[in-house]
Amino acid sequence: MNNAINADNMDFKSWMKQCQALCENDLSHFLPATTTVPGKLHDAMRYAALDGGKRVRPLLVYAAGQLFDAPADLLSRAAAAIEMIHAYSLVHDDMPCMDDDALRRGKPTVHVKYDEATALLVGDALQAQAFLILSEGDVSAAGQAATRLMMLQLLARAAGSVGMCGGQAIDLDSVGVALNREQLEQMHRLKTGALLRAAVLLGAMSGKTLNTDESAALDQYAAAIGLAFQVVDDVLDATADSATLGKTAGKDAADNKPTFVSLMGLDASRQLARQLCHDAHAALQGFGDKAQRLHELADLIVERQA
């Protein structure tokens, strides 16, 4: 685990693959086994969380933890917890009562593979499991109990009504509504950005209690990449095919949802993503070379093709 996080001499793609493999192993370890009753629910939880996705949020946890030499076990728990929250949100987002999608990460969505009731329970159980694993582990060192409590509070706020769930609520209420740019950005800072911000701060907090300047810089970085992530998502939804995306392409337009592309057009959206990437890099200047992986992840988020 330490090699994946601290391998400064490793190129970015190798580091990313090693961290993704680490996250996959940790998720498999922290999720209940299919042999544990109820087996169907646990099988569906593993189906939803394992074997897929770019693991951007865990990568951000590992990269931010590198800034302050965070301990491997706590980073492992933070990365797995935030990926479980993300996986649960996708399961619920795909259900017929929300976006009603049949494809996710190149395979049938959970409610299609199993059934709607199971999908609902999978999301509920993954959310509970995330907080369970983040609360466990060794807290005997000085200040560790207080740190863990702050991390749990941060994750709860990011996932709740003033974070991801709140953004999703605004999204559902905005179908067919012409939002202005400020309203659109607010929606996505909650729906997408809140969990990405939490990933960065959870990784950093695993290593130390942040001072005001460190917290402000990481907040600026996270705000920039969080919005950039959604802008690029909107561009890809309008330009890529379903096979490339691993989910149904063109669905935002078909569902009459407000997007950056519908508001600004493709060229202006791409320019906005590039500006946000520049802002993210600028926010990290005070961290020097230790922020290399965070710089590389900002580029990955903006340059990705899926």
Rank of each mutant, 00 (worst) to 15 (best):
A7D: 10
D8T: 11
N9E: 12
K13W: 04
S14Q: 14
W15Q: 10
M16F: 09
M16R: 13
K17M: 07
Q18T: 09
E24F: 06
E24M: 14
D26M: 04
F30Y: 14
F30D: 06
F30S: 10
M45E: 15
M45L: 12
A49H: 04
D51G: 11
V56H: 00
R57Q: 02
P71Q: 01
A79I: 08
A81E: 02
A81F: 00
A81Y: 01
I82H: 00
M84Y: 03
V91F: 05
M98Y: 11
D99K: 02
R104K: 11
R105P: 10
V110R: 14
K113Q: 14
G123H: 12
D124C: 04
A130H: 01
E136A: 13
V139D: 05
V139K: 10
S140A: 13
G143S: 09
T147Y: 01
M151V: 01
L154C: 05
L155N: 01
L155K: 03
A156L: 05
R157H: 04
A158Q: 02
A159T: 01
G160K: 06
S161Y: 07
V162P: 03
G166R: 12
G167Q: 03
G167I: 06
Q168T: 04
Q168P: 10
D173C: 15
S174G: 12
V175I: 15
G176W: 14
A178S: 11
R181V: 15
Q183T: 15
Q183G: 15
Q186K: 15
Q186H: 14
R189V: 07
R197F: 10
A199W: 00
L201A: 01
L201H: 02
G203F: 03
M205A: 03
D213C: 08
A217N: 06
Q220C: 15
Y221F: 13
Y221D: 05
V232S: 07
D234H: 10
T239C: 06
A243W: 13
L245P: 07
K247V: 05
K247D: 07
N256L: 11
K257R: 15
F260H: 14
V261N: 05
V261Y: 12
L263F: 09
G265N: 04
S269G: 11
Q271A: 13
A273V: 02
L276R: 11
A283H: 07
L284R: 00
D289R: 13
L294W: 00
H295Q: 12
L297Y: 09
A298I: 05
D299W: 00
L300R: 07
L300Q: 07
L300W: 10
I301H: 00
